[in-house]
Design a protein around this nucleic acid. Structure first.
Length: 499
RNA sequence: GGCCCCUUAGCCAAGUGGUAAGGCAGUGGAUUGCAAAUCCGCCAUCCCCGGUUCGAAUCCGGGAGGGGCCUCCA
């Protein structure tokens, strides 16, 4: 099997081949840290985290870099509004971003360089571009000259002439052509500024990504990722300046993730329909959110709504019920199981016949341009197979070998796959919370009393009497249901859960 | 005006030439004292029209509807 990746540059799926065998350098555009993160900001990180997880699973050594843009016009404006400094605002919002990543189980980022800490590298590139005639200083600014770059527009299929024709932007008088973009912006008094050969100023939007990606991953990246909305102008300009500077291909594979949709429109600060992550995580578990993002193919828009989240939560619940069932049968915690590669797991017996095709299909999905939506579907099928096996083998009642070992091996496959997707890393809130010693004790009391009545009822011959006793046990269950507690009479005894 | 993309059941969503994964909801059954949970079954011919092909949701042309980018945006 070969991993295939859709490359925006060529608009087709290509076999994935890193420039250095066994190693992958991946760069993904990170946030401008001027406001708390909204859920749209997490689409890219969750997807590329999964990309890294799968590449790692395949045996690649992946280095993943995400930049932090900590100087920019928006930061300057916002810091004035809040009566704070750009630096302080950036630090606060960076902390917020990092917290969001952590909560969503985005664990794969190796480096998060900051723009303000790489000014010298940017100046070096700008000077090089000026020396080669690709850029020109003008009144304290430095601009990239798009007319000098012969293949400018190749990523987004844009023609500088057309840009000119359709330009709605106010063209700065300093620019030679309307499509030229700023590499360096001369500063006004009171704005953050760094010294440069062209006077005090700050970097333009695109140059930092070229400087930092090259510093940490070399002149040619294997994968460059980002949101679809960054294709133009950001990635186009990054590409233009980088390749003009090095004469080398900047990125071999450009991957763009779809945007989050609220109803018909995308979610974005500019549309004003953003959902804060901190707020969101008050209402839904991080796992539900991550699952929602992975349920759709990464290049498609993702449907976001409270109803969708509730729906996704319901489907996820069946996994957690299974984890509890697994614990009942084996005494082991699913979340603590060791992660092993699926093809290293030796399955045998009847379970193998149902699991093997699923193993194959899961990996085929991931190989096909990281089709997490399809892979998730396989995960559900695996769940059904495992439940069916536990039913058929009567594992809860008998726990006989070799069925038990077979079962555990099957569950290890589920564990392996959920690790690739980064799912199921924490107990559900209701499992962790609520179950205090007192509550557990009280519940056990009710369950025991009810069990006694049930046993008695079953032994009573008189129909009226029997009905009376059962009515009582049902009343206990109904009253608990009103409190949000569900009783489950299983073969091995009665259990309870919230919800 | 230019450049991209999308349209699959009530809803969400895989599938890009060989006869429609999965989830939610619904529904019939097994199981249960009754439930819950679990399992089994049912539930779409793929926006419309035309073409290519032995064969198309999948390719081509036209139409309708929707979205993204061209300005900051993950």
């Amino acid at each position: 099997m070969t991993l295939r990746v859709y490359n925006t540059l060529t608009r087709q799926k290509e076999d994935f081949k890193p420039k250095q065998p066994g190693k992958v350098g991946m760069y993904v555009c990170g946030p401008t840290v001027y406001k708390p993160s909204h859920i749209g900001h997490m689409v890219g990180p969750v997807i590329f985290d999964t990309v890294k997880r799968y590449l790692t699973y395949l045996g690649y050594q992946v280095t993943w870099v995400v930049n932090i843009t900590d100087v920019d016009d928006k930061l300057i404006v916002r810091s004035k509004e809040l009566n704070t400094t750009v630096k302080q605002l950036a630090e606060q919002m960076t902390a917020d971003y990092l917290d969001c990543l952590k909560q969503l189980n985005v664990t794969g980022i190796d480096l998060m360089p900051k723009a303000t800490e790489h000014i010298p590298q940017m100046i070096e590139i700008m000077q090089g571009l000026i020396d080669k005639g690709y850029a020109y200083p003008a009144g304290g600014d430095v601009y990239f000259d798009v007319t000098r770059d012969e293949d400018y527009g190749k990523l987004c299929n844009r023609d500088p002439e057309q840009l000119e024709a359709g330009a709605r932007i106010e063209v700065s008088a300093k620019k030679r052509s309307p499509g030229d973009f700023a590499l360096w912006k001369g500063s006004k008094p009171g704005e953050p500024a760094w010294d440069s050969p062209w006077g005090p100023g700050r970097p333009g939007w695109h140059i930092e990504c070229s400087a930092m990606s090259m510093k940490y991953l070399g002149q040619t990246l294997d994968i460059h990722g980002g949101g679809l909305d960054l294709q133009f102008p950001h990635h186009e300009n990054e590409l233009a300046q980088s390749e003009s500077y090095t004469g080398q291909p900047f990125a071999n594979y450009w991957m763009h993730n779809g945007l989050l949709k609220m109803g018909q429109a995308k979610m974005a600060g500019s549309v004003g329909n953003v959902v804060n992550i901190a707020d969101l995580l008050q209402r839904h578990s991080a796992e539900t959110v991550r699952f929602l993002l992975l349920n759709t193919h990464y290049r498609s828009p993702i449907e976001y709504s409270e109803e969708r989240l509730a729906e996704v939560k319901r489907s996820l619940d069946s996994f957690h019920r299974f984890f509890e069932r697994f614990a009942r049968i084996t005494g082991q915690n699913f979340l603590a199981l060791p992660v092993r590669k699926s093809d290293e797991l030796k399955l045998s017996g009847p379970l193998q016949e149902s699991v093997s095709p699923l193993q194959r299909r899961f990996l085929e999905c991931m190989d096909d341009d990281f089709n997490t939506g399809g892979a998730v579907g396989v995960l559900f099928e695996l769940l059904t197979v495992l439940n069916r096996f536990a039913d058929t083998a009567k594992l809860e009642a008998e726990k006989t070998e070799p069925a038990l070992t077979e079962f555990i091996n099957g569950v290890l496959v589920l564990r392996s796959f959920s690790e690739i997707l980064g799912l199921f890393w924490q107990a559900q809130a209701q499992e962790a919370g609520g179950n205090t010693q007192l509550v557990n004790g009280l519940m056990q009391l009710l369950i025991d009393l009810r069990a006694e009545i049930r046993t008695e009822a079953k032994g009573v011959a008189d129909k009226a009497q029997k009905g009376k006793l059962f009515a009582l046990t049902d009343k206990i269950r109904a009253r608990l249901a009103e409190l949000g507690v569900t009783l489950e009479d299983r073969p091995g005894g009665t259990g309870w859960r919230l919800g």
